[in-house]
């Protein structure tokens, strides 16, 4: 049940950044915006410190709107229970790219360079997503070695999972949160961080198919998958 953490190299995806800042797939990117994304992507690697940390724990039980996880970790969410009742274990993780990129974006915004700040912010969003994908791949390899499979990621603050449950995620990581801390409102600092859970269970299709959105009534949610 020890917490694992590591640093990772990531590749920025220009196409995804274009989507983040509002372009659709088939739009011809202007030379101005294209060169801005290229320039900032080139320098972004100096501004990010991609780190991840995770722990794999046994699911003791899950029913109704509550799940008990090894180490007295209690998750309160019907949508989470729909996943964990299918799982033997759960990976609890946090990933981050550190604070320098968002500090730089904030300074650009204060200087009135909103376009530049928006592009750099989108690069940061893409970078932290890539770190989360890497951590997910790592957890997937561990599951596969035991003949198990993993679910999608799911984070507090979505569907019926209250953002206050970030405290349980951080408690499970027993202090090894790669420099990420919570505010009183349970927002993460640095902001370019992702926390959550990944279910680990038998390869019967249920865990891999799990989609929290299919249990959620918020049809207009911007994060709906």
């Amino acid at each position: 049940m020890s917490v694992s953490s590591d640093r990772v190299d990531i590749e920025i995806d220009k196409k995804q950044i274009c989507q983040y800042i509002g372009y659709n797939d088939d739009h011809h990117l202007s030379a101005r915006i294209s060169s801005l994304i290229d320039d900032y992507s080139k320098h972004a690697h100096q501004l990010i410190n991609p780190l991840y940390s995770y722990v794999i724990r046994k699911v003791e039980w899950a029913r109704g709107t509550m799940a008990l996880v090894e180490g007295s970790i209690i998750f309160k969410s019907w949508v989470v229970v729909q996943l964990l009742e299918q799982c033997q274990q759960v990976a609890i993780f946090v990933v981050t790219i550190g604070k320098y990129l968002e500090d730089t974006a904030a300074q650009l915004a204060r200087d009135g360079l909103i376009l530049q700040a928006t592009v750099l912010d989108a690069i940061g969003s893409n970078a932290v997503e890539k770190v989360a994908e890497h951590a997910q791949g790592k957890i997937g390899q561990i599951a596969e070695s035991k003949g198990l499979v993993i679910s999608r990621r799911f984070s507090p603050g979505y569907c019926d999972w209250n953002i206050g449950q970030q405290r349980m995620i951080f408690a499970a990581l027993t202090g090894n949160t790669v420099g990420v801390r919570l505010t009183g409102e349970c927002l993460m600092i640095p902001q370019k961080s992702i926390s959550g859970i990944i279910g680990i269970g038998p390869p019967d299709g249920n865990v891999e198919r799990y989609n929290p959105c299919s249990f959620c009534e918020k049809q207009d949610c911007p994060g709906r998958r």
Binding site: I21, N24, S30, R32, I33, L113, I114, L115
Partner: peptide, 13 residues
């Protein structure tokens, strides 16, 4: 798109 508008608005600003 939005970034194009921002570039123009920034120039005016």
């Amino acid at each position: 798109f939005i970034p194009d508008m921002l570039a123009s608005a920034e120039a005016v600003g």
